[in-house]
Amino acid sequence: MDTLVSLRNISKTYHLGKTTVPALQHVSLDVDASELVALSGPSGSGKSTLLNTCGLIDTPDEGEYTLGGESMLSRSSKELTMVRRNKIGFVFQSFNLVPVMTAYENIEYPLLLTGMRNMERKKRVDKILDQVGLEQYQQQLPDQLSGGQRQRVAMARALVKQPMLVIADEPTANLDTQTATHIIDLMKDLSRRYGTTFLIATHDQRMTERCDQKITLVDGKINTNDMQITADSELNKGRNG
């Protein structure tokens, strides 16, 4: 498979007054297209920083990042915005839906940014509303929806533009077990349908187990055992195949 996300020697340090906090230390990572990658680790391990870097909303102090074979870190702020607009979707822990927009409008928003024609936009939104099972809730405002429904709207919003990469930060953290399971199934299903790569920061064991690759971060570094396990698993898959 083609490598979609490639990080090389990424480091990021935060300065809090006189204290310096190394969030990422020489992280290198490859993620293939259409993969579901779980990113876990204790609080403060650098998961969010890694996700933000991959999602182009934070810049590392050093290293190289290529997305779809194109170098990202030398680009201007406007260019990065356009990459996010066209190629990256976001799913947030607290859903982050715009409260004055209906479910339909929230999902439609990324397409409005791309300047897509009205008919095409409607077709896309209707299709994804059907896929996430929210057709009958499309005119509801976010505060009229349950947590699970809101997260489904957030997923639909992230996927409606058919991005290469979806960054999901603790997408099941605010959901009950049953809803979380539905969301995990949905992510898996949508990843398969759209061929989208998911980079998911999670503490949820069920989600980690269902991902193609699991990466654990400890003190801003990737736990090399995970890489080994993943490599072994890939090898076994190849042998069995």
């Binding site: 909303i57 915005t81 976001f90 715009v98």
Partner: peptide, 16 residues
């Protein structure tokens, strides 16, 4: 503020 962050993350330009 958070909404501004969300919109910016989704690819909305500052001028938009």
């Amino acid at each position: 503020t958070r909404e501004i962050g969300t919109l910016a993350a989704m690819g909305t330009l500052p001028r938009e």
